[in-house]
Design a binder for these strands. Structure first.
Length: 379
DNA sequence: AATTTTCCCAACCGCGTCTCC
DNA sequence: GGGAGACGCGGTTGGGAAAAT
């Protein structure tokens, strides 16, 4: 039997998210912070269930998400962490902060599983009866004896202890193996001019949305008014408010407005050329407009591939992880009308922080790799 | 060029855990 | 303490894109 579906309501929309919905969701979360998912559909007018909203945010819209090819480092980390943790994708994802559990899971299922199986076949060591979960077999067997909670806590303690030790040990060595050097893995990063980390901080929710919007506008070039009115309809609102600058007049009402009159393509402007190269920089002008300069890749500073704000107001740190997120955002909203820039600032800060964090984690990852090599003979 | 097959990933579903009353 | 609701996680799937025929 089991519990009934979380959203039995009729009229709950399913399937792919539209850019309009994304904008509404991001705007709402920007104002209120992530969480309270159950309120989001009612407060935003989105015809989605709370679960769907949460998933969309965590897997796609959340700032700092890195998309695209996995690096060798990431691959190895996933393999080793999977060996250690089993299919605990959320736990694994916590060591790869720019990747979502869903992404990692997909990557494991579509690439790494095959790869590992092939490796084993090549080695002629097919003595492990359970390929899929074989690498975590020892964990699983112990799991059956120890209660899950205990097992989990022990594992976590072990990992954190190891991590801490490795962190200390590696703190002086900031260039472990391939990390952050000029020799990116040949696998998929051949053209990357700089480090993997630098080149991969491109991804943020702003860019994801930008890409979506670009496609959206391609598909409906005259969408300015119609799409905007759709948004208005969807969110049951009609007041003026720029995307990202959430209504300052009634934040407590938890509503999100998008300016119908201004039009989205006046807020976002894009390089209409091939957007498959996602490592674009996006600049934001004083009006909060996005633009994607064509020659961004020629930047030879460390910001290549990172969002670049050419004009940014002084705004405080603005992160959902930060407990002050909501209060700060409200404060700022009350005092300023800066379309997009707050969201941008938040995204930018987050992206930079993520990049630094990953530098560190990669180091740890490589450290773990050495440690774990004793327990696994995958390679 | 057209059709079929394979691959990939965003999103859904169901269940377990957590939190609050 | 226990029940209900909310949240989070992992497995699975559907549809679009890419590759193969």
């Amino acid at each position: 039997m089991g519990r009934p579906p979380c959203c039995e309501k009729t009229g709950v929309k399913k399937g792919p998210w539209t850019p309009e919905e994304d904008i509404i969701l991001v705007s709402y979360i920007q104002e209120h912070g992530p969480g309270n998912w159950r309120n989001i559909p009612t407060n935003t007018g989105l015809l989605r269930c709370s679960k769907s909203c949460r998933l969309r945010w965590t897997n796609y819209l959340r700032p700092g998400i890195k998309r695209g090819n996995f690096t060798e480092h990431e691959e190895k980390m996933i393999i080793h962490l999977q060996a250690l943790l089993g299919n605990r994708w959320a736990a694994i994802a916590s060591y790869l902060p720019q990747r979502t559990d869903n992404d990692i899971k997909n990557y494991w299922n579509t690439h790494l599983k095959k790869k590992l199986n092939n490796n084993k076949k090549v080695e002629g060591r097919d003595d492990n009866h359970d390929h899929q979960e074989g690498t975590s077999a020892s964990s699983s067997s112990s799991q059956s004896k120890i209660s899950k909670g205990q097992w989990e806590r022990r594992l976590q303690t072990d990992i954190h202890t190891a991590k801490q030790a490795l962190c200390d040990a590696l703190s002086l060595d900031t260039t472990p193996n391939n990390t952050n050097n000029n020799n990116p893995p040949p696998h998929d990063q051949e053209q990357q001019p700089s480090s993997v980390q630098t080149s991969t901080t491109y991804a943020s929710s702003a860019e994801n949305i930008a890409k979506l919007l670009q496609n959206w506008m391609k598909n409906s070039p005259k969408s300015t008014s119609s799409s905007s009115s759709k948004i208005t309809q969807m969110s049951s609102l009609n007041n003026n408010l720029s995307i990202g600058a959430v209504s300052s007049s009634s934040p407590s009402e938890g509503t999100v407005n998008v300016t119908p009159g201004q039009g989205l393509d006046s807020l976002f402007s894009f390089n209409s050329s091939n957007n498959s190269d996602v490592s674009q920089s996006v600049s934001v002008d004083e009006g909060g407009n996005f633009s994607t300069p064509e020659n961004h890749n020629n930047n030879n500073n460390n910001n290549a591939g990172i969002f670049q704000v050419e004009s940014k107001p002084n705004l405080p740190d603005f992160k959902p992880e930060n407990g002050n997120f909501q209060e700060e955002s409200k404060q700022n909203m009350e005092t300023q009308q800066v379309p997009l820039t707050m969201l941008e600032k938040w995204l930018l800060d987050d992206a930079n922080a993520q990049a630094e964090q990953e530098d560190q984690l990669m180091g740890i990852g490589m450290g773990m790799e050495m440690t774990l090599a004793e327990t696994t003979d995958l390679f």
